[in-house]
Each structure stands twice: as structure tokens, then as C-alpha cells.
Amino acid sequence: MPEPDIHLVDDDASTGDACRFLLEGYGYGVTYWSAGTDFLAGATLEAAGCVILDLRMPRMDGTAVHAALRERRSPLGVVILTAHGDVPTAVEQMKQGAADFLQKPVNGTRLIAAVDTALARSRSAWEVRILAQRATTLSERERHVARLVRDGLTNRAIAERLHVAVRTVEVHRAAAMRKMGAHSSAELAALWQRVAD
């Protein structure tokens, strides 16, 4: 998995620079964007990572950027940054899936905690996204076997259920494990659980 990036979207360049300085101090890699449109156009939105969004920006404000991210099903975790204590709007953004919201001027410890929460969520979301992508490569019969493995059935039971030889089940299960990147039946069951087929 690549090192998750932190995107910082703030119209005020000096605040943005200070924030990046702080985050880099804690060892994060930070990309600064001065406008929401630039960020949406230039950043890799499909990767795991975190975006710190200033709520109040001209042209395209934080809520609009967040909406665009949801629309593209981006796995990026969102931290809302607000200068005017617009709590109702921030709470609304939380409901829409933001990991946290912080009021400027933000305390470093709190910012790191929020960023870590967002990164964890993002990683999870990214994994689900990857797993879902992998799941699409399975054949119909392999998907069926994987589903039954998740339900805790043994090879024999699966063979009886599908009226095929145990050997055939073993072949399908091995293919599913390979395609999903699982090293054991138990892992396959856990992964399939997250795909939620």
C-alpha cells in the first residue's frame, strides 16, 4: 500500500503553509491546494489518504468540494476546518461522512488525531474499494464458493450444496483466494465479509 498523502485545501496561502509546516513536522507528506477546483482536478482521488478542507472559500467552498468527493466515491478521509465556528454546517458535513471538524486556529494534537482517524477510515474505504475491484474478477462459480466459505461451510458441504466434486470446490476456492489476495480460507471469509456480497 502506498504511503497515504494528506491534501490541504485552503484559499489562504499563509495559513496553508503553516499547517503544512506543522503536519510535516509530525512526518506526514502534505500536498497544498489553494482552491477546491485545483484539488479536484489535480489530486489522485481514488487513493487512500486524507483531505483537510477549509469550509469557507470563495468560488467553491468546503461543502461543495466534499460533495464532489462523495459523488466520485473517493476513499479520501475528510477533515473539515472552519474559521467561523459554523457548527451546524460542520455537523451536517459530519453526517455526510466527514471524519471530524476542527475550528481554527487548530491545536496540533487535535489536528493529528483527526488526521489519523481520517486516514484509518480512508485506508479501510480504500481496501474495500480494492477488494470490490478484485471481487469483480471472480467467475460466477468462484463467487458462489467464496460466499459459502464466508458462511463457514466446509469443502465437503459446499460440494454437496453445489452437486460438484470436492476437488472442483478446492480448485474454485484456490482461484478465489488467489484473485482476492487471501492466504487462507479464514482470510478469504474475512475479506468476502468486507465486500458484503
Binding site: C19, F21, L22, G25, K104, P105, V106, N107, G108
Partner: peptide
């Protein structure tokens, strides 16, 4: 007041972040 708060908060936020960034390093 909101406008002023926003305008003042920006530099204050920057100061805090720079200070904390220095602290960490």
C-alpha cells in the same frame, strides 16, 4: 465580527501552526 474573526483567525492559526511545527521538529 464574523468577518473580523475570520480575518484574525487566519494569521493566528498560522502562528500556532508554525510554532507547533517548530516545537515538533
Amino acid at each position: 465580527a464574523t468577518e473580523l474573526a475570520h480575518e484574525l483567525n487566519q494569521p493566528l492559526a498560522a502562528i500556532r501552526n508554525y510554532a507547533e511545527g517548530c516545537l515538533v521538529r
